[in-house]
């Protein structure tokens, strides 16, 4: 018998904050390590092997420690307040995304009624932080990078929102738990029929949203030297660039898994598979998505800024608009086919 614990609302909040603050950095470290290793093995090399003993598992801890010891440099002509605020404007949303992701049927920090709306809104707040960072650095490369990031995130926000809208229309709810519950279709990618297209659009737009290759012009290291973060150093660099990048990577993988891959549900609704707990399914699906994102990076060269914009406005957005039409017709004329 588990003794019943009653907690006040404040205590519950504190526990939730504690859980989030423990889980997000751990996820980030695991994903960061995975990025090292996956990329290394795709490139015929071993990657980190020494830190920590077993296959270099502690490499990111060592890296973090190194950054901790570095000098924190703020350029003389930078706008100091905006410069340091930008870190928070980027870091905080990256953590807050995790609040509404349902890891299991009841394992969720806060099941908001407008969960998906919140998710998409909060994940684009960091754009403001990037613009702040680029503007306040008093560096031309940073400025170019920030403006590229701004333009790119606006362009790719739309396909993400629109492809999510397709899911919302067919599931009939904005709550993420409801969306997952609605995915009882015995197939991998939901919604049926048009799901694969929506999923591909979502994945591509996510890569752009995460500013990862081949859509990494805002941070392209051989052109504008990590763009908006050129002037950031030490711990500030970790918290404004590296950490949010990996945290967002996992977040988008989780969102993809939730919206399209059935979240915590088994891949096929079979009684036997129901035995495996939901969070295991969720973790597996998220890991698959993370691998997908990591796989893309060493495979492609970088696009150019105008090609990227063309791709968003001329291909992805029309496709998702067409998908919304199809989904609308579906809900209107054959709603029973969904159940």
């Amino acid at each position: 018998m588990i003794p019943e614990i009653t907690l006040t609302a404040w205590q519950i909040l504190l526990v939730k904050i504690g859980v989030i603050l423990a889980i997000v950095p751990t996820m980030t470290l695991v994903a960061g390590y995975a990025e090292h290793k996956v990329m290394a093995h795709l490139q015929h090399r071993l990657g980190p092997m020494y830190p920590g003993g077993f296959h270099g598992w502690a490499v990111l801890l060592a890296d973090g420690l190194k950054f901790l010891y570095k000098e924190d440099i703020i350029p003389e002509r930078a706008d100091r307040r905006v410069f340091s605020l930008a870190t928070f404007a980027i870091f905080v949303p990256a953590v807050m995304v995790y609040l509404v992701i349902p890891v299991d049927r009841s394992l969720i920090v806060e099941d908001l009624d407008v969960g998906i709306f919140y998710l998409l809104a909060i994940s684009s707040v960091s754009t403001i932080g990037i613009l702040m960072a680029g503007w306040s650095s008093a560096n031309k490369y940073a400025l170019i990078g920030a403006l590229r990031a701004g333009a790119q995130l606006i362009a790719y926000e739309l396909p993400i929102v629109l492809s999510a809208a397709v899911v919302v229309m067919l599931s009939g709810s904005l709550s993420l738990v409801d969306i997952v519950e609605a995915q009882n279709w015995p197939f991998l990618i939901w919604p049926p029929g048009i799901g694969l297209i929506a999923f591909l659009v979502f994945t591509m737009a996510s890569v752009a949203e995460l500013t990862r290759p081949p859509f990494d012009m805002p941070v392209a290291e051989s052109e504008i030297i990590t763009g908006a973060f050129t002037e950031y150093s030490g711990m500030r660099f970790i918290f404004s660039f590296f950490f949010p990048e990996v945290a967002n990577l996992v977040a988008f993988a989780a969102i993809g898994a939730t919206l399209f891959l059935g979240g915590y549900q088994p891949i096929v609704p079979l009684g036997v598979l129901e035995v495996i707990p939901g969070f295991v399914w969720f973790t597996l699906k998220t890991a698959f998505m993370v691998f997908l994102f990591l796989w893309i990076r060493p495979t492609f060269p970088r696009l150019r800024e105008d090609q990227l914009q063309k791709f968003a406005w001329k291909v992805l957005i029309p496709v998702t608009l067409a998908l919304i039409l199809v989904a609308g017709a579906w809900v209107l004329y054959a709603p029973e086919a969904l159940r």
Binding site: Q43, P213, D216, A220, S222, R297, P298, T299, F300, R302
Partner: peptide, 9 residues
């Protein structure tokens, strides 16, 4: 051009 893999090959 942002393709990192050919370097290692």
């Amino acid at each position: 051009l942002g393709a990192i893999t050919p370097t290692f090959f």
